[in-house]
């Protein structure tokens, strides 16, 4: 952790220094520099491009373009800095025109999803590794299918002979095994749904016959394993889904930004 902490300290210090410098420059120049809004606009646009080009870097892993870790560090710190640049460009005022409002909202959404993603990326992996049962996201569905088939065999298969277990299975367990469940509970680290299911299983087991007990114990084991898969699916999906906001909206933001630039120049005092 030592290197990460040092990196973190360095990055945060650099960010704070850059922010202070930017604010001082803003104070010094925002009234005197000709075309100040154009200058901050171009700087903001350049920063946004650097942020966006990280995606291109990911598509070119075979070129020696620096490692992705450094890119991400730059992406994160520059991202925070760009938020400040954004406010400077707006001169710390709220936008009022429709185009400006849509631009600012897109920017806010992209930035907010980025910050959310950063937190998710720092929190969820640790939870996943603590829970264990490492599994590749694409393999969760096949594995769940295996568990479902196994559980069906135990409860309903030719060897099964207990109507009580079969009834319980079709009523309670079949929906559980049918697909991913309790995603929100897993996300908030609540084990209550699976505990109540296991408690019901346990109730049934206590009153069951020898054969039923065996079947129910096996089913409880399968439920736990299925729950592990659900947990991994919920968290791994969250780790992927935030990018569904961050990435597409970045494209929209870039297009709106280009339109903004064109309009600003077409409507500038110097437009011909």
């Amino acid at each position: 952790m030592r290197r990460f902490r040092r990196q973190h300290l360095l990055g945060t210090t650099a960010l704070i220094v850059a922010a202070i410098a930017a604010l001082l420059l803003h104070r010094a120049f925002h009234r005197t520099l000709p075309d100040y809004a154009f200058v901050t606009g171009w700087i903001l646009f350049a920063a946004m491009l650097v942020l966006a080009v990280y995606n291109a870097r990911k598509k070119l892993p075979f070129l020696p373009l620096g490692n992705s870790e450094s890119w991400l560090q730059i992406h994160i710190y520059l991202g925070f800095f760009t938020v400040l640049l954004f406010f400077i460009h707006l001169n710390f005022r709220l936008p009022r025109g429709w185009l400006d409002i849509s631009l600012a909202s897109l920017f806010a959404l992209v930035a907010a999803s980025g910050v959310a993603g950063l937190f998710l990326s720092r929190i969820l992996p640790r939870r996943l590794s603590t829970r264990g049962g490492e599994v590749i996201h694409e393999q969760i569905a096949p594995l769940r299918h295996v568990l479902k088939t196994e559980s069906e065999m135990i409860a309903l298969g030719p060897a099964a002979s207990s109507p009580a277990v079969a009834e319980f299975y079709t009523r309670r367990l079949a929906p559980f095994f049918a697909g991913p469940k309790n995603a929100w509970a897993h996300l908030f680290e609540s084990r209550r749904p699976v505990h109540s299911l296991l408690a019901e299983l346990e109730d049934l087991r206590r009153t069951g016959s020898e054969a039923e007990r065996g079947a129910l114990e096996k089913l409880a084991d399968l439920v736990r394993r299925k729950d592990g898969l659900d947990y991994h699916r919920a968290l791994q999906l969250t780790l992927k889904l935030w990018l569904f906001i961050h990435v597409p909206l970045t494209y929209a933001l870039l297009i709106f930004t280009l339109a903004h630039i064109a309009i600003v120049f077409a409507f500038s005092g110097g437009a011909q």
């Binding site: 000709p34 200058v39 600003v264 120049f265 110097g270 437009a271």
Partner: peptide, 17 residues
């Protein structure tokens, strides 16, 4: 129109000076 503006889009020198 944007392309014809003066100082133009690429004219960073013009913007600054």
């Amino acid at each position: 129109r944007a392309a014809r503006a003066r100082p133009g889009m690429g004219d960073f020198h013009g913007l600054l000076t």
